[in-house]
Design a protein around this nucleic acid. Structure first.
Ligand SMILES: [Mn+2]
Ligand SMILES: [Mn+2]
Ligand SMILES: [Zn+2]
Ligand SMILES: [Zn+2]
Lengths: 135, 135
DNA sequence: TTTCACTTTAGAATAATTATAAACTAGGAT
DNA sequence: ATCCTAGTTTATAATTATTCTAAAGTGAAA
């Protein structure tokens, strides 16, 4: 995703485009590749990148607002920090625990041949594949 | 796993079989089916089950000791609590977010037909499939 | 029995996240 | 343009999960 109209993106999802939200949205969404981050890492990068300082609470608020609006997804990663993902389509991940880095895998690059049926009254919502890497 | 010799299990992994460890190990390992739990849920269940109270710190210590010894594995689940698993073999999970319940899937019940090759100098350590359920 | 490294424990400390409530502001109404 | 107000930001406190600390307790070797 690149050079999208940030203001439209925010307005169309009912988010008032404040200075902070626009700054964070530009940082997150005006890029070619998927971006995976924690609130802590995002905070550090924003602090480096920008002059105006944004409160940590605002970063939490904004990331949650973006997630609720469907502009970010959450990825489960070992450890106690929450990871977010600018790729909101259905996809999978490599995880390199050495570097604590996530790498996207396109949904079409993994084909599952055999899968068990869901238990009792349940249905399958989605399937996530997580490939751990080593050296 | 059932009616295993708890004392042997502990001693063979260099863990002195204290009253607390034996009690926790019996609770965790003397059962037919896999048991998935958080430290909090384990603590509650142990409190109900037993007369002698075990300190929360001891439960943390013991669970980590068992994990290090290879008697427990850790499962990544949405949320900020750490989940543990008495099934230490390679396997997969259904996850029912309604009930926050994990259900084991035998490794052989999922067959992956197509998988991308690992990036640059990396190798694939293992593949975890996580199937989210809905009603 | 004595001894001591290992273990347990209560409580303090830390880390991530969420809640609070006062100050600020985007943007529609006047 | 100015007013008004619901929505937003912010500093700080609170909460939650987990780890640390250091004092007291204990398994088991000798
Ligand atoms: Mn996690
Ligand atoms: Mn988790
Ligand atoms: Zn991703
Ligand atoms: Zn399991």
């Amino acid at each position: 995703m690149k050079k999208i109209d940030i203001l439209k993106k925010l307005r169309s999802s009912g988010l008032r485009p404040t200075k902070q939200r626009v700054e964070i949205a530009k940082f997150l969404f005006e890029r070619e590749k998927t971006f995976h981050f924690t609130v802590e890492s995002l905070n550090k990068l924003l602090t480096k990148k920008t002059t105006s300082k944004i409160a940590l609470a605002t970063i939490y608020n904004t990331v949650h607002a973006f997630k609720t609006a469907g502009h970010l997804s959450e990825v489960e990663v070992r450890g106690n920090k929450t990871y977010f993902d600018t790729n909101v389509s259905n996809h999978h991940h490599f995880y390199d625990s050495e570097t604590a880095e996530l790498i996207d895998i396109d949904a079409n690059d993994i084909v599952i041949q055999k899968i068990p049926k869901a238990p009792n009254g349940k249905k399958i919502k989605n399937v996530e594949v997580f490939i751990n890497l080593k050296n």
